[in-house]
Every structure is written in structure tokens, then in C-alpha cells.
Simulated scan of single mutants.
Amino acid sequence: MAAKIGGAMLASVVVAYVADVIISDRKLFGGTTPNTVSDKEWWEETDKKFQAWPRTAGPPVVMNPISRQNFIVKPRLEG
């Protein structure tokens, strides 16, 4: 009984893997690749923009995990 269950589980894993490879990697149902992904010039221009941004830090920020909003942390004046 255990051999049948193990064999069935192994077979289902193999079928799922083969289906994944055929559908996603070989694009059985077509699938598209955005032009930006395949365009080398777009990648170069994007990289230039990222490298050109100033690398200065802003004020410290804390994220509220409930509302997913960022709040700037202001220093407290003591005294």
C-alpha cells in the first residue's frame, strides 16, 4: 500500500514538473516577452539613469506595518 502511495506521489511530481516546463519554458500557450526585456538599448539607458541618481540619504523613515505608509522620523528635542 505504501509503495502505491509513494509511486503515485512521485508520478504526480513528475507530471507537475513536465507540465511546468512545457507551459512556462516552452511557452505552450504563446506567452509574450515585453520589448523592454528584450531590448538591450533600453537596459543600457535604464542603467545610466540608475547610476546618475544622487546617492544622498534622506531623513530616517519608519513604515507603519498596518497601513503600509512611511512616516518621517523627526528628532525629539530634549530639554
Results as ranks from 00 to 15, higher is better:
Asn64Pro: 01
Thr56Met: 12
Ser38Glu: 06
Arg68Ile: 01
Thr32His: 12
Asn64Val: 01
Ser12Ile: 02
Ala3Val: 10
Arg68Phe: 02
Val15Ala: 09
Leu77Met: 11
Asn64Gly: 06
Ile66Val: 07
Phe29Ser: 08
Arg76Trp: 01
Lys27Arg: 12
Ser38Met: 07
Ser38Cys: 00
Lys4Leu: 13
Glu41Asp: 02
Glu78Arg: 07
Pro54His: 13
Met9Gly: 04
Arg68Lys: 10
Ser38Val: 03
Gly7Leu: 15
Phe50Tyr: 14
Ala57Pro: 00
Gly31Arg: 07
Gly58Ala: 13
Leu10Glu: 06
Val73Cys: 08
Ser12Val: 04
Val13Gly: 01
Lys40Gln: 02
Asn64Thr: 11
Phe50Arg: 14
Thr56Pro: 02
Phe71His: 14
Ala3Leu: 15
Thr33Pro: 02
Arg76Ala: 00
Trp43His: 15
Trp42Ala: 14
Phe29Leu: 10
Ala57Phe: 06
Ala16His: 04
Ser12Pro: 00
Val73Ser: 05
Ile22Leu: 11
Arg26Pro: 01
Lys4Val: 13
Ile22Trp: 14
Lys27Cys: 00
Val15Pro: 04
Val18Phe: 11
Asn35Ala: 13
Ala19Phe: 02
Ala52Asn: 15
Pro60Ala: 13
Ile5Met: 05
Gln51Ile: 11
Ser24His: 09
Asp25Tyr: 00
Ala8Asn: 10
Leu10Ser: 01
Val13Tyr: 01
Gly58Thr: 04
Ala11Arg: 03
Val37Trp: 08
Pro54Met: 09
Ile66Met: 07
Val15Tyr: 04
Val62Met: 15
Val62Trp: 10
Pro54Leu: 08
Glu41Gln: 13
Gln69Met: 15
Pro34Met: 06
Val14Glu: 00
Gln69Ser: 14
Val37His: 05
Tyr17Val: 15
Ala3Thr: 01
Ala8Ser: 03
Asp47Lys: 10
Gly6Ser: 10
Ile22Glu: 05
Asn64Ala: 09
Gly58Ile: 02
Gly79Pro: 01
Pro34Gln: 04
Phe71Ile: 07
Leu10Lys: 07
Ala52Tyr: 01
Pro65Thr: 08
Thr32Ser: 11
Lys40Leu: 04
Glu45Asn: 14
Ala16Arg: 10
Tyr17Phe: 14
Arg68Thr: 00
Asn64Ile: 09
